[in-house]
Every structure is written in structure tokens, then in C-alpha cells.
């Protein structure tokens, strides 16, 4: 059984400490939603912030129109370094959400380094017909980081290559087998078993794939959902069907006989369908199978909302 379904992980810390959503308003990125756990001071600083294009981490992801990994705050362009240091946060990944050429939001996940927390947030980028590692944050999975830096994926192979070729999110349960061989072996040793891969649409022809690799001990989340919102192209994207999903508490979420669907504005997934914006929620146990927090990310294709990916912890 995959790591996230292992009940033993229920009480462990998660790999990501905080997640926040920034949306454009009057030419700047302003705070939209976020979950900072117990990091109230950092939350308070963040909620007051705004970023121009190119400013800070969210502004950089907007300006460069690509996911940005920042592994050290001190001395960097990260504008909340002091508050982050006080909160114990050490690294962050910013993911822009574009609908065609329009920036809808920037999602930032923040992590705290320690010797125990293992996981991976990777950004893969196409170069000469192959996906190469653009950058990644791995926590304590140092060997896996090194292996990943020396791995490439042809189209269709492995989680990054599969997501790239399918242009659709994928949730893999078994990273320890056949997953470009050496990387699989290293992933197995690092305890990384479950992987979520997301195509990141940006203006132009560049291809980015974001992978979130979850470890048994410090999972990125305990429940993952992949919703297919590709309704008829000639109609509005008003509903989505659950294409895949797995939950530590409820087991497999997919059902090949009875498709689970949500309509726009129906629950948090419906809210993402309705607004087209990412969403971070907390204290929503009733909505989210008892999980306190969730992140829902819209995935755009050709300018229209194609999928919603959600993870809960």
C-alpha cells in the first residue's frame, strides 16, 4: 500500500509548512488565501504584503513566467526573510498559474529544513526534446537530489515524462519501480513512493512539469484528488469529475463505475471551478474528509481550466 495510505503516517509532520495564494490586483500581486499552521507572525506579515512584477518570490515567478525554487532566503530577493527565519522557514517554491497569457495567481509553498523531513518538489523543464531538472527542493533527500540532477526524462517516461506527454496531471503510487531505474532505487531508499505530477502552463511554448514526491515519514499530503474539468470545449467549464485520488483515511477515491462529480461553486473544488483561482483552506474538516487543510490548484490548458488538483493534510 502506498505511503499516504499508511495509517502510521497520520500523526507525522508534513513536508510543506505553509501554502499561500497571491492574485493580481491593480498591477500587483496581493495576498488571497493561505494556510500557515501555527506560524501566525509570518502569516500576519504575509497578509499585508503585495508584490510588483519581478518583486520578491511571487513577483519573480510572475515576471519570469515559470516556477521558481528558492532554497535559501538570506541574502536573496525573498522579501519576508526575517519573518521566515523567525518562523523556521528556509525554502520556498513559487508556481505561477497562467490561463493563456493571463496570470491568474501565484501559489507559494514554504518548507522548513531539518534532518528528518524528506520529500521533493521539483521543476522539470524541456530542453532538446528531454525533460531536465530545472531546480528542486528535497529536504533531507540529498542523494535523491543528486540523482535527480543527473537524470533526464524522454516524453512518456517516468512521472515527469508521462505528465509532459499527456499534458495532464498524474498521481503515481509506485516510484520505486522502473522509474528511470537509478532514480527509482534512490527514491525507494529515500522513502519516496507517491508522486503527483502537474503540467504547468506558461505563456509561449516552454514546457514545465512540477512534481511533488511524497515520503512515508513526512508526506506532502495525506489525500490527493485529481479532478478532470475538461468538459465540452464548446460549453462552459461548469463541472468536474474525479479522475483519480487516494486518501489515507478513505483509501482509493476513484470509482470506475460511478463517476464522482462536482459543479461550479459546490464545495472547495467547485469554488476553484467557479473562480478559476487556486484555493488554500483550513479548518474545513467537514468539507475535506476530516483533514484540517487543503490546497486546490487549477491546471490550465490552452487558456481554459482543464483540471483541478487538490491535496489535503
Amino acid at each position: 500500500m502506498s505511503a499516504i495510505m499508511d495509517p502510521a503516517t497520520a500523526t507525522t509532520r508534513t513536508f510543506v509548512e505553509a501554502t499561500e495564494v497571491w492574485v493580481p490586483k491593480d498591477g500587483r500581486l496581493v495576498w488571497s488565501s493561505g494556510n500557515y499552521g501555527a506560524l501566525d507572525a509570518f502569516a500576519a506579515v504575509s497578509e499585508e504584503k503585495s508584490f510588483g512584477k519581478g518583486e520578491g518570490l511571487p513577483g519573480k515567478a510572475w515576471d519570469e513566467a515559470r516556477p521558481v525554487v528558492l532554497k535559501a532566503f538570506d541574502g536573496s530577493y525573498f522579501q519576508r526573510a526575517e519573518a521566515a527565519r523567525a518562523a523556521g522557514l528556509t525554502s520556498a517554491v513559487a508556481v505561477p498559474v497562467f490561463a493563456g497569457s493571463e496570470l491568474k495567481a501565484v501559489v507559494v509553498v514554504l518548507c522548513a529544513d531539518d534532518d528528518q523531513r524528506t520529500g521533493a518538489i521539483e521543476v522539470w523543464c524541456e530542453a532538446n526534446g528531454l525533460l531536465m531538472l530545472d531546480d528542486g527542493y528535497y529536504g533531507a533527500a540529498r542523494h535523491f537530489e543528486w540523482v535527480s540532477q543527473h537524470t533526464h526524462f524522454p516524453p512518456g517516461q517516468g512521472l515527469p515524462g508521462g505528465v509532459w506527454a499527456a499534458n495532464a496531471p498524474m498521481l503515481m503510487r509506485d516510484l520505486g519501480s522502473g522509474y528511470r531505474f537509478i532514480r527509482a532505487d534512490s527514491a525507494g531508499k529515500a522513502g519516496l513512493t507517491t508522486g503527483l505530477g502537474l503540467p504547468i502552463a506558461v505563456p509561449g511554448r516552454q514546457t514545465y512539469v512540477l512534481t511533488l514526491l511524497s515520503a512515508r515519514g513526512t508526506p506532502i499530503a495525506r489525500r490527493f484528488e485529481l479532478w478532470n474539468a475538461r468538459s465540452s470545449r464548446s460549453g462552459a467549464a461548469s463541472e468536474a469529475a474525479l479522475a483519480d485520488g487516494i486518501c489515507q483515511r478513505e483509501g482509493p477515491l476513484w470509482n470506475d463505475e460511478h463517476e464522482r462529480r462536482v459543479a461550479a461553486w459546490q464545495g472547495p473544488i467547485g469554488e476553484v471551478l467557479g473562480t478559476g483561482l487556486p484555493l488554500v483552506k483550513y479548518d474545513t474538516a467537514l468539507l475535506t474528509a476530516g483533514y484540517a487543510s487543503m490546497v486546490a490548484l487549477p491546471i490550465y490548458r490552452d487558456g481554459t481550466l482543464a483540471h483541478v488538483v487538490a491535496w489535503y493534510y
Binding site: 498524474m170 503510487r173 519501480s177 487516494i246 482509493p252 470506475d256
Partner: peptide
């Protein structure tokens, strides 16, 4: 077991237990 879901097991997108 759900035989028609063997292909996602093959691809790694499902586990056999599922």
C-alpha cells in the same frame, strides 16, 4: 480484483491493493 484496472497498476498509477 478489478481486472480492467490492471493497466494503471502496470503504469504505476494505481497499486494492486487499490
Amino acid at each position: 480484483y478489478n481486472r480492467i484496472m490492471l493497466s494503471p497498476v502496470l503504469s504505476g498509477e494505481k497499486s494492486f491493493e487499490e
